[in-house]
Write a protein that binds this DNA or RNA. Sequence first.
DNA 1: TCTCAACGC
Length: 743
Amino acid sequence: MSAFPLAAAASLSSSSSVAQSYGSALPPAMILAVIRENPVTIVVGETGSGKTTQMTQYLHEDGYTSLGLIGCTQPRRVAAMSVAKRVSEEMGVELGQEVGYAIRFEDCTSDKTFIKYMTDGVLLRETLSSEDLFQYKAVIMDEAHERSLNTDVLFGILKKVVAMRADFKLIVTSATLDSAKFASFFGNAPVFNIPGRTFPVDVLWSRTPQEDYVEAAVKQALAIHLRDPPGDILIFMTGQEEIEATCFSLAERLDQMRSGGQDVPELMILPIYSQLPSDLQAKIFDKAPEGSRKCIVSTNIAETSLTVDGIYYVIDTGYVKMKVYNPKMGMDALQVFPESQAAANQRSGRAGRTGPGTAYRLYTESAFKHEMLVSSVPEIQRTNLANVVLLLKSLNVDNLLHFDFMDPPPQENILNSMHQLWVLGALDNVGGLTSTGRHMVEFPLEPALAKLLLAGAAMGCSAEALTIVSMLSVPSVFFRPPDRAEESDAAREKFFVPESDHLTLLHVYQQWKNNGYRGDWCARHYLQGKGLKKAKEVRAQLLDIMKTQRLPLTSCGSDWDVVRKAICSAYFSNAGKFKGIGEYVNCRTGMPCHLHPSSALYGLGYTPDYVVYHELGMPCHLHPSSALYGLGYTPDYVVYHELVFTSKEYMQCVSAVEPEWLAELGPMFFSIKESHSSRQERRKKEAATAAAMAAEAAQAEEAKAAAAAAAAAEEAERRQKAREAAATPAGRRATTPRRPLGL
DNA sequence: TCTCAACGC
């Protein structure tokens, strides 16, 4: 048996009611003995304890793999891949053979595989085809304290598996903070403590609350740079805008000092956030030249996803951006909240990976103790659960309100998600799965996108739907370097299909295909080649699933109106009705959604005689990245992929739709009837004594509407022409059908 | 009032 590097310092503590004690030195044999004797074991292992790579090998050496697989789940794909690679190297086998990994759209395992690393979402999906996970003898849920949505659902499912199978072992890793809670959820499971090998970090508090934490962080970073011994600095901010402001201000202050004659050593200022193009991201791993140091300004991405060595100083603003779902509004809000105490400790810990470090917290100790939650609200309690509901339904969980969640989500979220699925035709009137629902659950997609594929198949445009769904399943392919924002925006606009952001994505993909899937073509048009390639892979995998589902692959050619209709049938719950310049209202909830001034739909309007009827109305905005933003024509009705409140209620990924489609495809929400205003008009006219005058008035009204419509059409045409003149992607006009919508 | 954290199936 290989040496267990953790054993020397490992100890076993017990949960409240299991009074076992194993002393301070714990050989692997003892850990394995406890696992043998208990169906569930909680392992508290700090970062750097090596548990992720060692535990699977121990279980293998203890014979668990002779009868089945050992699975180990990770919250992130890169972790699943890199850990599998390392373990395969340690065991001297080829990756993908005895040791492999599986992530969405990528299965790197074989018949020989007995240790399998995977994302927790993959294991969750596997429970669909084998409810008791019979192929696994043991599952290790790593980083379970992060409490991802999938982890939490798996908790409930694996608890059942443990109850069903006496031969199954579950090992859950947790942070110290949650170990008692985890142990109690799994029936007083024993708890191991495996100390990590990180260095101590001095925590320094702000004496007074900071009004402007960007300014405070800049000052602190400069103070460290000018005063303290070598070692790199990591600053945590909430988002891209703050990061850029911080970087700018730091550079400016350094310039000022130098031009004032001060001798300031060099400081590499490095922003990092997920939307940053990957070549710029990679710079944070460059070593600072001798005599200088680097200062990384980061979002949460450096809290868990990215680990940079050499950090001795952490500056923590104390805030974090989080998505919170509001079921009443059907909207996500992306808002800044104080971080949790657990997150603060995690951030501080980033200063202690290479040597003893210092964490500067830009808030008071009292704020930490009294204003911060001990740990973050688990994702399952603040998210749309449509996907989870669909999955549990297909696992025959009849009553979701009684499902054994460690922290149950608000009942309202569950009921709202069930309603969404009913609306999409995935659930019947008594909450059972329909055949549509059974088709949908086969796709590793959110329900609306799965529905879009099914609708595409039914309407003869599944090839186009497939491309759009694939493009929405990868990070945005539009490349927007902060220093070339205008150029890249102009490049993006050349691909715009004015009536639809969804069709714009389709257009980009088709152009890329027409240009031989070339990388240099991507670079020229400010597109992420990597993302497009990924979309192509995703498309192929989804196509495989479509084949097994016997769904036809058909193209509608250049008749893209059909595609918009398919989009409408997936997204009619997210319909917005034109309200005023730049402003829409969600037809159902009354939620506001605004057109962004750069939308194609912005700035023009007309009044239809008939409307899709709904009294409520709240504004929603077009996102500035939308093809519909500010380009000059305004459809009366749009559907959107997602509504997120940031500075405003912004719709993301918007398509114009015909009102009669909404009535046809979403009859539970919409019916066509005469609008209030046009009814009044009619009655007025009826009351008029002179029939001739009334007719004249009507004529005048019509002429006005026609003129407005013509003007709108002309304007749209003009803008289109202007864009075409500027556009370079070959053949765009030839392949993009368009007509001014609803005019 | 012209822009969004980072994860995942």
